[in-house]
């Protein structure tokens, strides 16, 4: 554990609480993509299958359980909890996200380099890395449809975007001291941050004013 990874994890955790705060305060879920949340739930459920395989640390275990449960809770609020779910904008949450869930899974299974002893978990983990890198697309699509996004939604998306950026700093740090590199997570993280970069640029430039896309 180093400071970059710790900041990254806290940013990630913060993004959930910003979102819960936004929904409670505004009493609506306008501008939020349910589909992105659904993808994140698949990501966490697949990646954290290792909760049943081995123990790393209390910190990791608690974070994993929080990521899964907070994502499930937000899905419940956005789609099923009244009155919030009545304001869900399904018209603009129109990204065809299911179209890359299945081809992606097939692709990862096919290009796995280490068939012999990789095991099902390794394939699930790899897939979760790539799926996470794309999971924000429905949310980005949504704010592009509406051409603007509320400040607090912007804070939520920015903390979610900067979290992976700080993981990149963490990987650079780890590589510098140990010369170890995990290519899949590093490349997935770079792709993920790149997809956010446009938004993060606009976010930083807006400096708290209304974010227009």
């Amino acid at each position: 554990m180093n400071i970059f990874r710790f900041i990254a994890d806290l940013l990630h955790l913060t993004s959930f609480f910003i979102l819960i705060f936004k929904i409670r305060k505004s009493m609506n879920v306008v501008g939020l993509s349910y589909k992105s949340k659904e993808l994140y739930l698949v990501v966490f459920l697949l990646r954290y299958l290792d909760l049943f395989l081995y123990f790393v640390s209390f910190y990791n275990t608690i974070m994993k359980i929080l990521y899964i449960s907070l994502t499930a809770y937000l899905i419940y609020i956005i789609r099923f909890r009244r009155p919030y779910c009545l304001t869900y904008d399904s018209q603009n949450d129109s990204f065809p996200h299911l179209k890359f869930i299945y081809p992606g899974a097939a692709l990862v299974t096919l290009i796995s380099l280490d068939y012999s002893n990789i095991g099902l978990f390794e394939i699930c983990w790899t897939y979760s890395i790539w799926l996470e890198s794309l999971a924000i697309l429905p949310q980005l699509h949504m704010i592009q449809q509406t051409k603007e996004c509320e400040n607090i939604t912007g804070h939520y998306m920015a903390s979610l975007g900067f979290y992976r950026f700080f993981y990149i700093l963490n990987w650079i740090y780890v590589y510098y001291y140990t010369e170890k590199i995990q290519w899949i997570s590093t490349l997935g993280g770079i792709l993920q941050t790149a997809l956010y970069s446009d938004f993060l640029y606009v976010y930083l430039k807006s400096q708290g004013r209304k974010i227009e896309i």
């Binding site: 994890d9 790393v56 990791n60 390794e122």
Partner: peptide, 10 residues
């Protein structure tokens, strides 16, 4: 070995 595949990141 099993530890080779142990993931310590989130």
């Amino acid at each position: 070995s099993k530890s080779k595949y142990k993931k310590d990141e989130l």
